[in-house]
Design a protein around this nucleic acid. Sequence first.
RNA 1: GCCGAGGUGGCGAAAUGGUAGACGCGCAGGAUUUAGGAUCCUGUGGAGUAAUCCUUGCAGGUUCAAGUCCUGUCCUCGGCACCA
Length: 768
Amino acid sequence: MNNDYIMTKFDYNHKNIEHKWQDIWEKKNSQKADDFNDKPKFYALIEFPYPSGEGLHLGHAFTNIILDILVRKKRLSGFNVLYPTGWDAFGLPTENFAIKTGIQPAIATKKNTDRFKAQMKKLALAYNWDREINTTDPNYFKWTQWIFLKFYEKGLAYKAEAAVGWCPSCKIILANEEIIDSKCERCGTESELRSQKQWILKITAYADRLADELDLVDYPTSVKQSQRNWIGRNEGTIVKFENARREYETKEIAIFTTRIDTIFGVSFVILAPEHPLAKELGQTNKEVADYLVKVSRKSERERSESVKEKTGVNTQVDAVNPTSGEKVPIWISDFVLSSYGTGAIMGVPAHDERDREFANKFSLPIREVIKDDKLINSGKYDGLNYKEAQEKIIKDLGNKARKETIYHLRDWIFSRQHYWGEPIPIVNCPMCGLVPIPEDRLPLKLPQIEKYQPTKTGESPLANIIDWVNTTCPKCNGPAKRETDTMPNWAGSSWYYLRYCDPNNNNALADLKKLRYWMPVDLYLGGAEHTTLHLLYSRFWHKFLNDIGVVPGKEPYKSRRQHGMILAEDGSKMSKSKGNVINPDDMIEKYGCDTLRTYLAFMGPYDQTMPWSIKGIEGARRFMNKIWNIFNDESKFNDTTSKELLYLLKKTIIKVGGDIDKLKHNTAVASLMIFLNEWEKKEVILSKEDAKKFLIILSPFAPYISEELWHGFSKKESSVHDQQWPIATADVQEENTTIAIMINGKLRSTIILNKSVSLNKQREIERI
RNA sequence: GCCGAGGUGGCGAAAUGGUAGACGCGCAGGAUUUAGGAUCCUGUGGAGUAAUCCUUGCAGGUUCAAGUCCUGUCCUCGGCACCA
């Protein structure tokens, strides 16, 4: 069966044309961004891909093309454009591939990036290839390590016990991204929590700035909102309840609340099972001890399932309400989280749903203390508005209460127990403790090894490489051991946009002058999956690097846009297992790159989820054929352009340019189609000069066919891609506008007004 | 539950408060062709022979005029979620 798109004598041969120009452009290597230039700069950034073994997929093609169209238009409009790409190449799939096959990750990475690059070139993505970067390149990760050392130097990287996922079957530590639905990604075993010493970055030190400085940038509301939710800033009060029994070590229980005004409604206090007092009580009270054991055996999943049914144990010990002096029982329950606030809450069942559930289950008293925003049953505070009452109660409590802001954001666990990541450049010396590797000895490279499996003790595979682990202390020169943890995937991508500004610098992560010229990123296009973590992490690193004076500006990305997703024809997600994946290579082969690009631009707004349509791409192919045919029809050209067509051309130039700038590629393509449809009509002709203008505004979408046709009119050396975006001023004299006249909701008549009529005059006419 | 995005033809969609459905797909009829495909022409929101009427999730409101602005409500999708 012939799988080729059936070509007739009218069709152009996309294969010949596209191969030809791909070779010529490759040799010309023309896309260079000049550091420092009088032209206005434009920095367009696309999330750099992870070079997987499967090759570039349709989603990559879609998003890269969307940005490529804008970039080509910006270049034609006289901008000095920085449009780079690279490889976010550290990561688990490559490591897992190495475990399975024994092929070195670096070799697999090279193979994959070569393939991606070839595919990108076929798509006519006009990157500054001379700025290509790779996070696994020692010349790159030298600076990732350098940044880590700066964090360490400033006290923002520290080592501490942290709960991490653990697979009891594979006997390895699981990164968050390896836990799918609370199960181990490899074997499907239920993951457990385990405490282990980890490197941690103190992102919480930047929590306020990460939230507040969102006001400085142009991100979609949803992105800003989800960043703020993730940071989860909450202003409230920490209040101390005394332990009524003096024999315990924990004399006071600190409690975080946002509603200190409800303190007269407290009928119990609840501790998280991990709370120090809970542990203390467990030593003497068997019932408490049993509960703590029961809870600790629960898996993460079981614990989150307990939402449905609250559990708890009465400790038989009381706490003293510091405002009323009332004694209330202390309970322990796992619905109170040790990781949020102080790990202890005051139970106000009348005004908190969860507390009410708990009170109902264990028959605890419920007392209402707020009615219509005013306090009741609250002693001397009765009648006060709840906000006033908060201030007053805090003041009256003196040193037993203070205002406090807490965050949902946790510090960032930065260690991974894997091979294929940046080694953490720290040495453990028995004499000096943790010692950073001096900057001039960076990069600390990965040793070449044969076995990539993690060790059964939960350490990284690097721990098995004795030659590498054993080293000398940079401080005392005594024997010491290297840190064997590596950095997470997020590390290299947290600063890559900076390296593009100066990719080969050996003395700094990038030259400050170059950074001052190019930064900030003018437009960052990426996917919804990176709305919170990647964006937050890279903003954090940027702010830190700005604080230590190595990069300019508070924020890395001036504006961020999120692209949508392309679904399979039936509206389901494309997936290998369903066998409904559309491969961009096949589409290029069959219909041509220009057709694919134009269709992807035309199918709908870039930020939406849209189903793929094979009929749709055939429609785009018809559009290409029509262009080809009309340009090869001598009778459609003459010395002067028909008047009505000239006016439409001006309108189209303005519309296409404006729409591309707004990333409204779909309506830009529509207006190109409208122009072509008009031109196809009998009796209208175009001059060759005006036809060239059409090719220029077509070229961002269809770079090959426009270049080929351009050469039908121009000298050999010239390229449609090196031209200037045509300037068109709307000719107001020619344009009339029709205004509908409506009376009582019915259309009564229409009037045609010349647009040059002033607004006042229009109002006069309207009055008549 | 909280936050965000969105509901317009058979489908993807378009529309600075100004004649809703541009453009594309699909469909129907015609031309061409031995035939099919491709191509070209015409038509295509719904009802009605027609004049005309109805139509942007639903119910109200503002306006000469509402898909668009306001109030309420329902539904779909995405994220977070025992966050005190």
